[in-house]
Amino acid sequence: MAANLAGMWVLAGYFAHSATQAENPFTRTALGAGFWTLFAMAWMIALDAIERLQLTTLGRLLLQSVFLLPLLLSLNEGQHLSIAKEYANQSDVFGAAILRHLQIVFLAVVPALLIGLLLAWRMTKKQNLRQALFPVLNVIQTIPSIALFGLLMAPLAWIAIQLPALGRAGISGVGLAPAVIALFMYALLPIVRSALAGLEQVPAEAINAARGMGMSAGQLLWQIELPLAMPVLLIGLRTAVVQTTGLAAVSALVGAGGLGQMMFDGLFSAANELVILGVIPIVLLALLADTFFKVLSSLIKKRP
């Protein structure tokens, strides 16, 4: 399957080369929708086949990375294709866009993890907090992301005007602030839900014994509750990171930048290659995060 994928690229590159006889850098040879559909489907079939192979996590990881080779090849073999030319034109922006994308994800997920954990921990002790918070988190989850970005713009702009210090620190109606806040709110639900499920399956007798031996609430959390809740928590964290990586693309609409910016630039200028150049790294980042957490989970499970 990997050979098949690579072959498609080599062929496409060859034809592009023969088609673009003139040495004009503005000539483009674009791949058709059929190619991309075929490519995406072949890739999905391959990934699905790997999932079914029942390999160790590490083995699966290696095999999956083999399937990334065709993409790298495309940058070399397919240098006469328009996507490669688009990449060459955008290469300075490309790296910055990836970094910006990662920054958005990081700024949304890390606070969501810390606050989500704290909320879940409080919930194990206070039933009414749970009854109050879960409906709110569930409703947030149903708001379309574009609407939520939009909803946050006005109040944030107002805050920036009222408190100029915050405005100078980068809080404003457009840009990073509304994007990060909205993504934070989306990430909260899977994290709180999994953290709570994880904390609740910690054996009550272990908690009882730990308290009876003189552990403080903090020691109990760090030494007993969190390690025992970790396997379940990681599942939610994985969902949150993958989901945020995808949603962060939409945040370009409120001026947050990132890979979504390239995607929308491409959309608005009808340059399909640019769209793809933005989308592929997003998919890869999401897959990478997914795999990372799967590996982490399997490492934790190895310990009883």
Partner: peptide, 12 residues
């Protein structure tokens, strides 16, 4: 020292 019926050893 505190010992209880369910033991409450830490599984991890």
């Amino acid at each position: 020292g505190y010992a209880i019926q369910s033991v409450g050893l830490f599984p991890h």
